[in-house]
Amino acid sequence: MIKTLVKRLWLIPVVLVGWELAAMAVASPYFPAPSRIMVRLYEMFAAEEAIGHVWPSLARVVGAWCVAVLVGVLLGVALGRTRWLADYIDPLVEFGRAVPPPAMLPVFLVLFSMGTEVQVATIIFGVIWPILLNSIDGARHVERMQIETATVFGIPAHLRVLRIILPAASPKIFAGLRLSVSLALILMVVSELKGSTEGIGYLLSLASNNADMPALWAGVVMLGVLGFVLNSLFLMGERRVLAWHHNRRRS
C-alpha cells in the first residue's frame, strides 16, 4: 500500500524541491518559489481575503451548472423523443454549440449590466450545449423494443420516461455532463476576469494588476484544487448513478 503510494507520488516532492531550488537560483519576481506561493495562499485565507471570493465563485458555478443540467436534460430528452423535430432543430443546436461561449459575454454584459447575473448566464449558456446534445442523442437511441414493450404493457408516459428512457440515455448524458464540469470552471473564471468585483477570477485579475506574482500563482493553485474537488465529486456521483451500467457491461 505505502509502496505503491510512494511509487505513484515520488515525482511530486521532487518537482516541488526542484522548483524551489530553481526559483532560488533565478531569484526572479515572476517565478516565485512554491514555499512563497503557499505562504501567500495562507495569508490570503488567514486575512479572510480569499474566503469572501471563493464562496461567490463556488455558489455561481454550482448553481449555474445545476440549472444547465436540469434544463439541458429535460429539454434534450423531450427533443430527442420527438423524432420528427430532429432534422429541423439539429442545425440550430449544432450552431449554438459552435459559438465560443466567452464571445457571449458582451451580450450578457449589455443584458444584465452587472454582477452575478452576467456570470451565471455565461456559464449556463456555455455548458448547456454538450448536455443538450448528448441528452438528445441518448434519448433518440433508446432501443425501440424496450419502449414498445412498455407501451404494450400500458406503462404510463411519465414512468416510461423515468424508468426506461432516462436510464437508457444516462451513459450518454453523463458523457456530456463530464465535459460540462470543466467547461463550467473555465467560464466561471473568464466571466470574473472582467467587469466583476468578487470571485477567484477577480482575485487573479487584481493580483495581475498589482503585479503580485505569488498571489497570482496562489489563485491558480486555488483553482486547481477547486477543479480537482469538483471533478472528483462528479466522478463519484457518476460511478454511483451508472453502477448498474458498468456492471452490465462487465458481465
Binding site: Y30, L204, V220
Partner: peptide
C-alpha cells in the same frame, strides 16, 4: 483540472 483561462494573467507576464 486547472482551468486553462486561469493561466491568462500569468502567461501575459511570461
Amino acid at each position: 483540472p486547472i482551468p486553462s483561462v486561469a493561466l491568462i494573467p500569468l502567461a501575459l507576464f511570461f
